[in-house]
Design a protein around this nucleic acid. Structure first.
Lengths: 214, 214
DNA sequence: CCAGTAATTATTCAAGCGTATAATAACAGC
DNA sequence: GCTGTTATTATACGCTTGAATAATTACTGG
């Protein structure tokens, strides 16, 4: 009886494979049934290897949560920092990007929910969530300040904060609605509704394309 | 060695106890660690009894999900139907009620997330979610139509639908933000922000108290 | 081409899981 | 009070779990 052949991969490569397999497994089978054996099988390795890279299953789940959130903020964060664009256009792109693929994705939502449900159970998950939330809100707040300035209004910090919270809520809520019941949503894309709503929240400032940057 | 004493409870009473224990256990230990033994212990019975009331653990989880959602829509639904009030005031109360205790509660949010993460795993959970979402959106849509009419505007169905989706998103999103990071939120209650934002979405219609109903 | 290293597999372990069944005691009706 | 019913307890079963250890094989550096 011979052993199965294998190849020695780099640490970065293996860890990534294992994290991807973990996320796939949780999304498909739920946290309850995401066992180390199933995850290892999906990653194409045997279960013993997991403990070679993560000293416990919990640590691997935390790493997977961090990875998921990083992948979700990455694309949106890019558009928010794309300086050549108008402030209004950056906010617009930011909203659209958060309400389209790959962020608005049923699998990602499922994973997000699974991890959020553990925020109260495990303090480490709470910490990861808090970091990501604050970063997201700060991004929105910065965009709002830029848009107000661009529109010739005073970017009062208190007003920016409140608008950021409201916009953040609107984006999160429509993200939920749009990806949870997407079949019912095909007619009216969440992104379009979000843009019109954001304009209303901003007191009528249009987020449509402009000819010159501020 | 004598057996532990017990009392024979009614079916309704026992089922309620078991469901409450299930929700407590999931909120505290997570779905992974919500075992039949732990749930039974919290309900003050032995594990064998669970299968006397639920033919499997999954069925008990489904019952718990239904119970959770019913408890969350109940209070808000009441205010939405409280006819003596102005339409504007009913919408206002509906929003406030969804963003205050007992709906805006960290434990409930944790439970909601745990179940949402199972919507993609188990079709029964998907069904339960869909029913509740549609009912909630219809309630908001009805309130929006009433408010528009009250303000002398045409309650165009398409506009009502879009406003309902946006308001629904706003409420859900602020519910998430407010209860997930409530310590950072004490200064500015989510409900106040929601009211002001809803007024903006409605094109400036005030939701403040009025002297006479429509 | 050989030796050393460590990534990977294979196997084992105790504990805990959901489920099933048999024994028992609480209560209802007479 | 006694008796029948059944809600409840107690116990057992087979399986899976996360973790630990030992054996092996792929690769690195000389």
């Amino acid at each position: 009886m011979s052993r199965r052949s294998f190849h020695r991969a780099s640490e970065a490569e293996r860890r990534r494979d294992l994290i991807v397999a973990t996320l796939d497994c949780i999304a498909e089978c739920g946290l309850q049934n995401a066992t180390v054996r199933e995850i290892a099988a999906r990653a194409g390795v045997t279960q013993g290897l997991i403990r070679h890279y993560f000293s416990s299953k919990d640590l691997m789940l935390q790493a997977a949560y961090r990875d998921l959130m990083a992948s979700m903020v990455a694309s949106a964060e890019n558009t928010a920092d794309h300086r050549p664009l108008t402030a209004r256009r950056r906010l617009r792109e930011f909203i659209v990007s958060n309400l389209s693929a790959p962020v608005a994705d049923a699998k990602k939502l499922s994973l997000w929910a699974a991890f959020i449900s553990h925020v109260r159970v495990d303090p480490v998950f709470a910490e990861i969530h808090k970091e990501n939330y604050l970063a997201f809100r700060d991004t929105v707040e910065g965009l709002v300040a830029d848009v107000l300035t661009d529109a010739g209004q005073d970017p009062d910090p208190a007003r920016c904060r409140e608008l950021a919270i409201a916009l953040n809520g609107l984006i999160d809520g429509l993200w939920l609605e749009g990806t949870l019941v997407d079949d019912l949503f095909a007619e009216k894309p969440a992104a379009e509704i979000a843009i019109r709503s954001a304009e209303a929240l901003l007191g009528g400032i249009s987020l449509a394309d402009e000819l010159h940057a501020s």
